[in-house]
């Protein structure tokens, strides 16, 4: 494994009375795809926001390219070369697709650089090009994103992250709202990003996808590291166990010897993941070090934090139910 391009140590984050993250470590090596998994409310999105500058950590250290860095604002992350696709999609409804893609990094023609003149034509040309690479089908790049479907919006958000030539790409549940073909495209894209030497951090609830494209899986549980697995050597069951807390594996790829009664197939994860399910109560004694707070059952069962009624989770069954 190469020296990680992004490395987090002892990251903590509080929201008032809620200790959302405590002592989280994470290494994201270049040329690898790292998956971050965990139950609803485990702190995955919070961790992403500490890296992207949207919600800086309350404590801990971040190293980027071997240097200690402070990411206090989104600009800092962008300047370092960290591109993020947020779970709650961050698009401006009133702007068209082109302007959303280039928001904050608009190309400027040589003659108008000092005046910050926009190069609309270059923007539009590159947008069309980029979207067709990603097989994104939208009626027109000049319509406001308000009129796109949830999956189309997500595709735009993903395309957006690739424009700035980033070194690290973070995708928070990138396929949650996508159709079959678009999901395959995104997974394919993740692999291509890795082949280009980028570091990719993917959050997903779909272990099949995770095992298909990722090199390592890091599990968060109740705001703490709960395991780190080498995909080549680990089984889905082990990862599930770490997610649900059925066994407090702190580290160690490919360990065997699970306790009985664990969900054997991915299909049972949803049920086992609920607090008070088969895994939760059984090992209460093992978790003396963990916060006493349990994930809120309503959150755990519901769709991801979808932005308002237009979110990807609002149509049909929750993406998690379908993916697991």
């Amino acid at each position: 494994m190469t020296e990680p391009v992004l490395s987090l140590r002892n990251i903590s984050k509080r929201f008032g009375a809620v200790q959302a993250l405590s002592g989280v470590d994470l290494d994201v090596p270049a040329g690898e795809v790292l998956a971050l998994v965990g139950d609803n409310g485990a702190g995955k999105s919070t961790l992403v926001k500490t890296i992207s500058g949207v919600g800086p950590p309350s404590g801990g250290h971040i190293r980027f390219d071997g240097r200690e860095v402070h990411i206090g604002r989104p600009q800092d992350a962008v300047a370092l070369g960290i591109a993020t696709v947020y779970q709650d999609l961050s698009l401006c409804d009133n702007l068209d697709v082109v302007n959303n893609l280039f928001l904050g990094r608009e190309p400027r023609p040589a003659w108008g650089r000092a005046l910050h003149v926009l190069d609309e034509i270059e923007m539009e040309r590159r947008s069309v090009e980029l979207l067709s690479t990603l097989s994104v089908r939208i009626p027109s790049v000049r319509i406001p994103v308000a009129s796109l479907s949830g999956g189309q919006r997500q595709s735009v958000a993903i395309a957006r992250s690739l424009l700035g030539d980033p070194k690290v790409v973070i995708l928070d549940e990138p396929t949650a709202a996508l159709g079959v073909a678009q999901t395959a495209q995104v997974l394919d894209l993740i692999v291509r990003l890795k082949e280009r030497g980028l570091a990719v951090l993917v959050i997903s609830h779909n272990l099949a996808d995770v095992f298909a494209v990722c090199d390592r899986v890091v599990v968060l549980r109740l705001g703490r590291n709960s395991g780190s697995f080498d995909v080549a050597a680990a089984s889905q069951e082990e990862v599930v166990a770490a997610i649900t807390g059925a066994d407090t594996v702190l580290s160690g790829a490919g360990r065997a010897g699970r306790r009985a009664g664990l969900p054997a197939t991915a299909g049972e994860i949803g049920e086992a993941g609920l607090p008070g399910g088969s895994g939760g109560a059984a090992d209460a004694g093992d978790r003396g070090h963990q916060p006493e707070r349990e994930p809120d059952p309503s959150r755990a069962a519901g769709p991801p934090d979808a932005p308002g009624s237009e979110g990807p989770g609002s149509e049909g069954p929750s993406p998690k139910e379908t993916s697991l």
Binding site: P74, A77, L103, G104, V117, L118
Partner: peptide
């Protein structure tokens, strides 16, 4: 209509958080 500055004003009118996340001051 023609400058990045102006476009960011529109963006702020549409979604402040998205504009902030896009790295705009």
């Amino acid at each position: 209509r023609r400058t990045a500055y102006g476009r960011h004003v529109y963006a702020l009118g549409g979604n402040v958080e998205a504009t902030r996340r896009a790295g705009i001051n």
